[in-house]
Amino acid sequence: MALAPERVEEKLRERFPGVAFERQQGEAVRDFTLFVPADALVDVCTFLRDEPECTFTMLSWMGGADHLPRVPRFECIYSLLSIPQAARFTLKVRVPEEQPRVPTVTGVWPTANWHEREAYDLYGITFTGHPDLTRILLPEDWVGWPLRKDSPLGYEEVAFTHNTPGRIKPSPALKKLAPKKVRYRAQ
């Protein structure tokens, strides 16, 4: 019998009574998502991985999201997969803008290493305890967090005739540069 996400929530509330879990509401939120406070994250993840009924041994992916006008601004989304139970579960951590810090889960799932580096690279969220928190996709000396909503896209204006008024028109002498008509050997 597949493991229902409600059962997972029940077990979590039972095991961590003091922690403020919150189910994400919304009619079009198609996956069961649970908000977890950042300080309880590592314990919750360890429990979900080791608990015999849950066995969420794989962290499928971890990503960040920026909901700019909303406070707290960032979110870290953890999507867990349990192969024995054939079940998925999603956890979310709200990350404030002033102190964007989340404890790392590389101790629970080693695969989180690169996912957290990517979230750091694109959003600037720091993962405390991460073994090697450096930029992964952008050059090492890049300044800024590109996927934040207040970072620009970096669009470069394409040069057309109508928006390059000072362009140099090609001189007629350039026609001499056209290569000589050369015949190929086969002809």
């Binding site: 919304g26 009619e27 079009a28 939120v29 198609r30 996956d31 998502t33 499928s60 999507s79 999603t90």
Partner: peptide, 10 residues
């Protein structure tokens, strides 16, 4: 215009 929400499909 999709509804306000989230979805993950693999």
């Amino acid at each position: 215009f999709p509804p306000v929400g989230e979805a993950y499909q693999a």
